[in-house]
């Protein structure tokens, strides 16, 4: 399995960031939190590999992976 990628990897970085923020337009705090939670779960399932996910959790906590 590949390691967690922490170098630039998005096909269209600016485009994705714009889409991510736009997805929250018009949502209140609770709806936005729920959207983020669903997004995390969808992405986690796509990745699948336990090692990558565990390193992603560490990276998100700003710990060394």
């Amino acid at each position: 399995m590949t390691d967690l990628i922490l170098t630039p990897n998005l096909e269209n970085a600016d485009g994705f960031y714009a889409d991510l923020t736009a997805a929250h337009d018009g949502l209140n705090k609770a709806e936005s939190d729920a959207l983020n939670a669903r997004l995390v779960l969808v992405l986690a399932n796509h990745i699948g590999a336990a090692k990558v996910l565990s390193n992603a959790l560490k990276a998100a906590k700003l710990q060394d992976t």
Binding site: A34, A37, V40, L41
Partner: peptide, 10 residues
Amino acid sequence: RLLRDAVLDL
């Protein structure tokens, strides 16, 4: 609870 509800909605 938020994550639990997200799992259920999905």
